[in-house]
Design a protein around this nucleic acid. Structure first.
Length: 592
RNA sequence: GGUCCGGUAGCUCAGCUGGAUAGAGCAACAGCCUUCUAAGCUGUGGGUCUUGAGUUCGAAUCUCAACCGGAUCACCA
């Protein structure tokens, strides 16, 4: 902003010393003071060797004299309030309007490449409310980075292997009767989720039966057929058993189709998807390599560990005694593959704050393994989403399913809109489209407006409220603006800037005539000086202007018993009314 | 217990690279629909910014301590 440069010039000109731009803090003037921008002069007292008021006064005078964009100023304590000329604002708005890519920095070839990982679902159950926050944050972050000139690769790591998937597969095999998304009409991810729940139910039933026979909990767990079968299935999978792999691929494909639907509805996407089934072996290799280099250590039972006590952390398991990999191993492998695939300058993981420790460890491990990106990785950590009723707990079945929630948001939007008659005259198709936009807008805005670090409470009711700080409110305001512009165009009204201080429509002549249509009222008002009458007159006048001006906020505090009248007008309306009065020979003070 | 993160109005949240009398929305209360979408607008009330000390001309903001709340410290992911 060149106002800042003007201020710098002013100070350097006045006091003959260089001033660092960072010292020049221009902030929005508080609304109880006159002015647009406020300069805090305290940092310059050392240079000016004068008191705050004197310094502010000198800077203000210099600016008004030499800088045409500064119209006037006032000084309150150490604060210099500057009033910027309207032409400057208008010019600024015109520039912004003309700049199609305003606010963004173009990405050039040498721009740093940032990879952002988000979403990261498991393939044994559908996405839930927590994933919604993750997806919205991850996608937004990617778009923000892009707008700031970075090259961005959005990525997703799908956890498609492990005992949890085998549980779903097993339950389906045992009691699925060949059910498919097509045969049941269910979304694939939900279908698989159902079998995961079924496994859990059957397993618990089995445990209860075994314990009823007098076995301890541990003994029952050890004897469980369901769990043994699941483990056997995982073993077969890892051994590459053709039948198991085929089942796994088939069921995963259903899940992916379901996820894709949800992602599409949320409006998020990915440039590159990684699957843990394809990265865990690389991770294992990396760990074994680290072991051979003496970075890690092996225990007698064969398990491999990283000792991080020198870094103030504990020991961390990297490979189980049976040689299978853990979460951390997979993340190492994934990182390796990613950096082989792309010239990544910065890696960002959008993952919940319950994994803060995990990423602290990952960063250290990657660094130890010699990946230069290890230390610089960013864990974009975010808090949990709770509901007004309390925390989500999968065990208690209080997990909020993402698809269900989205459906609920959309149907609520439709219901409310319909009730208010806002959807009258729209086709079924248009109605659905509008409801989708409003419902999802509510959800997205409510979730994104909260500081990511914080745990938050998602209140569906409140989010879709059409009043207040909500998505639908913003959408509504946008729709109204569009409506105003459309109608203005129909009437042939366009906005033009006529002079430095006023924005007046082409219909200025009409306005003055309208004012003249009220002379008797005005005279009466002026003679009797009744505040109520004046207020009423102005109110009528403003209503008259409403055909052309859309800033008609007016507050009447007229009390016929008292002789004072306070009007709060937005600036343009105030100016127009003042002109109106002066045309009729009535003096109106600057501040009413 | 160790580590990390939070604590601002009755509720949900801004403000946190130190700046004026700490802001929104919701809820409560009062007013505004013949004329642009009232899904809106205007106003009123509501605060020891968890507490205590420190740094500073100036602290919700920085430092230290304490107190609350959450997360995490698995051969789970």
């Amino acid at each position: 902003m060149n106002i800042q440069l003007s201020v710098q010039k002013a100070i350097e000109g006045l006091y003959g010393q260089p001033v660092d731009v960072s010292l020049i803090q221009l902030q929005k003037t508080k609304k109880e003071f006159k002015g647009h921008l406020t300069l805090v002069v305290f940092p310059f007292l050392k240079i000016s060797k004068k008191n705050p008021e004197q310094t502010a006064l000198e800077i203000g005078e210099w600016l008004v004299k030499k800088e045409s964009s500064i119209e006037s100023f006032n000084v309150i304590k150490g604060f210099l309030n500057l009033t910027i000329a309207s032409f400057y604002w208008i010019g600024m708005l015109e520039n912004i309007h003309a700049d199609k890519s305003f606010g963004t920095i173009p990405t050039d070839e040498n721009a740093p490449l940032v990879m952002i990982e988000y979403s990261s679902p498991n393939t044994n159950k559908p996405l839930h409310l927590g994933h919604i926050r993750n997806n919205l944050l991850g996608y937004s972050l990617a778009e923000i980075m892009k707008a700031n000139g970075y090259k961005v690769v959005k990525t997703n790591i799908v956890n498609d292997r492990g005992i949890h998937i085998c549980k779903s597969m097993l339950a389906w095999q045992k009691s699925g009767n060949g059910a498919t998304p097509e045969s049941t009409g269910k979304k694939g991810d939900h279908l698989i989720g159902d079998y995961y729940v079924l496994f859990d139910k059957e397993y618990k039933k089995e445990l209860n039966e075994l314990q009823a026979q007098g076995l301890s909990k541990e003994e029952a767990e050890a004897k469980s057929v369901w769990m043994a079968d699941a483990r056997e299935m995982l073993r077969k999978w890892e051994a590459g058993d053709a039948e198991t792999i085929a089942l796994w691929q088939n069921m995963n494909s259903w899940v992916y189709a379901g996820f894709d639907e949800t992602y599409k509805r949320l409006g998020v996407d990915f440039d590159k998807i990684y699957y843990e089934s394809e990265t865990y072996l690389t991770g294992k290799e990396q760990v074994l390599e680290g072991l051979s280099k003496g970075i890690f250590e092996q225990q007698e039972d064969g398990s491999v560990w990283a000792d991080l006590s020198a870094d103030g952390l504990d020991k961390k398991l990297l490979l189980r005694a049976d040689g299978t990999s853990v979460y951390m191993t997979q993340d190492i492998g994934t990182a390796k593959l990613r950096f082989d695939d792309y010239p990544i300058n910065k890696m960002v993981y959008v993952v919940g704050n319950e994994q803060n420790y995990h990423f602290q460890v990952l960063s250290l491990l990657l660094d130890k393994l010699g990946f230069e990106f290890g230390k610089g990785l960013t864990h974009f950590s975010y808090g949990m989403v709770e509901l007004p009723e309390g925390k989500m707990k999968s065990r208690e079945g209080t997990v909020v399913d993402a698809d269900d929630l989205i459906d609920e948001m959309v149907s609520t939007a439709k219901e409310v809109s319909r009730k208010l008659g806002k959807l009258d005259g729209y086709s079924e198709e248009e109605t659905n489209r509008i409801s989708e936009i409003v419902g999802l807008g509510a959800l997205k805005y409510f979730i994104l407006k909260v500081d990511p670090r914080k745990n938050m409470t998602f209140n569906p009711q409140e989010s879709i409220d059409f009043n207040g700080n909500t998505g639908p409110f913003i959408q509504y305001t946008y729709a109204r603006i569009q409506s105003v512009l459309r109608k203005a165009a129909e009437q042939g009204i366009s906005l033009v800037s006529l002079d430095k201080s006023l924005i007046i429509t082409e219909k200025e002549e009409d306005l003055i005539q309208n004012i003249n249509a009220f002379p008797s009222v005005v005279k009466e008002a002026a003679e009797s000086y009744s505040p109520a009458l004046i207020a009423n007159y102005i109110y009528d006048l403003v209503k008259e202007y409403n055909q052309f001006y859309h800033d008609y906020s007016i507050l009447r505090e007229a009390d016929s018993a008292k002789r004072n009248l306070r009007l709060i007008l937005s600036e343009n309306t105030g100016k127009i009314i003042r002109i109106g009065f002066s045309l009729l020979g009535i003096d109106v003070p600057e501040r009413m």
